[in-house]
Design a protein around this nucleic acid. Sequence first.
DNA 1: TTGTAAGCGTTATCAT
DNA 2: ATGATAACGCTTACAA
Lengths: 342, 342
Amino acid sequence: MVDDGPRRRATINDVAEKAGVAIGTVSRYLNGMDLRKSNRREIELAIEALGFQRNPAAVAMKTDRTGMVGFLVSRFDEFHTPLLNHLSRGFRQNGRTMLAYVHDGDEMLLRNAMEFFSSQRVDAVVMAGSPNAPESVAALTNRGVPVVIFNNDMSGPKVDRVFVDNLNASCRAVEHLLGMGHRKIATCYGRLADSSGRQRREGYERALLACGIPLVEDFYHPGDWSTQGGYDAIQKFMSLPEPPTAVFSANYRMTFGMLQWLRENGRESPGDIAIVSFDDVELFRLYNKGITAIAQPISEIADAIRSYVTTRLTTPDIPDIRSRTLDCRIILRGSSSEPSRR
Amino acid sequence: MVDDGPRRRATINDVAEKAGVAIGTVSRYLNGMDLRKSNRREIELAIEALGFQRNPAAVAMKTDRTGMVGFLVSRFDEFHTPLLNHLSRGFRQNGRTMLAYVHDGDEMLLRNAMEFFSSQRVDAVVMAGSPNAPESVAALTNRGVPVVIFNNDMSGPKVDRVFVDNLNASCRAVEHLLGMGHRKIATCYGRLADSSGRQRREGYERALLACGIPLVEDFYHPGDWSTQGGYDAIQKFMSLPEPPTAVFSANYRMTFGMLQWLRENGRESPGDIAIVSFDDVELFRLYNKGITAIAQPISEIADAIRSYVTTRLTTPDIPDIRSRTLDCRIILRGSSSEPSRR
DNA sequence: TTGTAAGCGTTATCAT
DNA sequence: ATGATAACGCTTACAA
C-alpha cells in the first residue's frame, strides 16, 4: 500500500453520506438532540468507521463560540501552576480549552494578554484581580465576554469573584503563634494595592489586638510579595534591639527570602525565630522540621472558578455578580514552636 | 446612550467597505502581500477605526491551519513550567498559540492528550520523548502533524529532537566531585527507560572510570525520578558500613528527597555528604550554602524547539529529521565542598 | 495590483 | 424527526 500523504479528514458530510442521512441529522446528533434510534446507530457507526472528529474552527465560525478560556497570571509559580492544572482538567471535561498567558507583572504585557485573548476570541477569561487592569477587563465584559477574577478583588467591572478568606486564615495563623507563647510577632506583608495583601495584614493585626498586644511599627515590613522583600524584612527584624520571636509572612516567596537570609547568617527557624507563612509549598515540608503554613484550597478555588465560568456561558442572563470566599487550612509544622533561645 | 448589548465584531467585509476596496484586497493586506500604497493606507485606517481583528476560526477553516501548537508533559514542574513559558512567548511572536496538556505519567491520559490535540487540530506537537508513546506519535506524524520531542529520545517516529548533553554534563559534575577530593561517590539515578536516565548514569560511570575508580554496586540506587526515590537512596547510602562522601543525583526531585531525609535525621550537606544534582531550581540557592547543580539551558531548548516547529510548518519538505544537543552549565555552590567530617 | 466568487465544515432555519 | 439550504468570515484561484 502506497502512502498517499496525509489523508483528508472526514467531515460531517462524509458521515452523513455513509450513514445515509442528511448532514443536519448528523449535526443534531453531535449536539445531543433527539433522533430516531436507527439513525443514531448508523451515525455512530459511520463516525467510528471514518474516525470523524468535529472541526472546532467550523463550529466556532457558526456559533461564535470557540470553547476557549483565557487564563491570565503574573507568573507560573507554585500557586498558579497547580491552579492552571486543575482548571485545565475541569474545563476540558466541559469540552473547553485553557489558553494561558503570563504577564510577569508588566502592565504592557497585561494589555497584550487581553488583546491576545480578544483576538483568539476566547469565550471567557480567568485572571487574578489587579488594581491596574479595570479598563482592559471592562473592554472584555462590554463585549459580552465573562471574566472571573480570583486572589485579589478589583473594583469596577461586573465580574464574578473567587477568593480565600485571607483575613480569617491570617488571624488564625497569628493566633496559633500567640498560643505557642509568642508575644513579639512581626509581619512581612504583601503589596497593599492587592486586596489579599491588605487582608492578610489585617488578620495579623486583628489577632494581636484581640489578645491585647499593641502593634509595634518596627514589626512591620512591606515585602512586596518578593523574595528580596522577605530577605530585607528578616534582616531588619533580627537587628532590632529587641527582635521578634516570631514572624508572619504573607506569602511563600517572602518566606523563601527569609529562609535564605537565615541560612546566610547561620540562623534557623524555629531556633532563632518562629515562622508562619501563607501558602503551602514543597519546600515547606523540606526545611528543618517544616514551615507552618496556610494552605489555600486550590482545587476548590478551581472548581468555583470553573463553575462560575460555565454558568455564565450556559445561562445567558445571570443578573448579579457572584462571589465566593473559601477557607484555608493551617498546616502545623516545626517552624512555629514556642519561643526558645535568648 | 443605551447599551445595545455586545456590539457585533467588525469583519473583513466591514473593513473593505470602509476602505473602499474589495475584501480580497484586505485579505492580501492581512497576509502581507503587495498592494497600492493608497489602499494600504485606507485599509489600515479602517482597521483601526473598526477595531477589526481577524477571526482565527475562519482562517483555520480556509487554510486548515489553526496556529495552535500542543505541548504535552507529564507534569508542570520547575523544569517544564519555565519551558512552557518560553515556548508560549516565542510561538506567540510567530502568531501561534500553545495548548498545554499534563498527563501525570498516565498512559491513558497520554492517549487522551493526543486525541485532544488531534480534535483541536493543532498544527504541531511538542512533547517529552516517552518510551510508551510511539503509536500515538505516529498517528500524528502520519496525518502530517509535525512532532518535536525533547528530554528523552524515542525510537521509531520521524520527529525532530532537542536534547541536552546529559552524558557530558553528568560526567563533568562527577569530575568536579573528584576534583574536590571525593573518592566514594554514589548516585541516585533516574528511570532507565528514559534516555536521559541512562545517559546521566553513564556520565557518572565515565567520570569514575576515567579516574580509575571502580564502580561499587552499593553506590547505585534507582530513584525513578521521584522524591521518594531520593529519600530511599540516601537512607541506604548513609547506612552503608562505609558510606559515600558524595552523591550525584540525576534530577532535582530526587535531591529534594535526599534533603528531606537529611533533615529528618539531623544531617546536612555538605557536612555529612556532598551533593551535586541535575537541574537547577530555586531551593538549591536556599538550602545551606546552596546545592551545586547542573542547569539546563531552558531558553535555548525552547528556541531550538520553536525553530524546528516553525521550519516544519513553513518549509513543506524537510527530508531528514533534525536533532540538536545543547550543553548544560554547572553551577558551583556549597554542597559540593571537599570531604570533611568522618 | 485589484475585484469577484467559490468554498472550507459546521449550525440553524424552514419546510416537510 | 428529518432533509435541504443559507449563512458564518475568511483565502485563493481566476479574470480583468
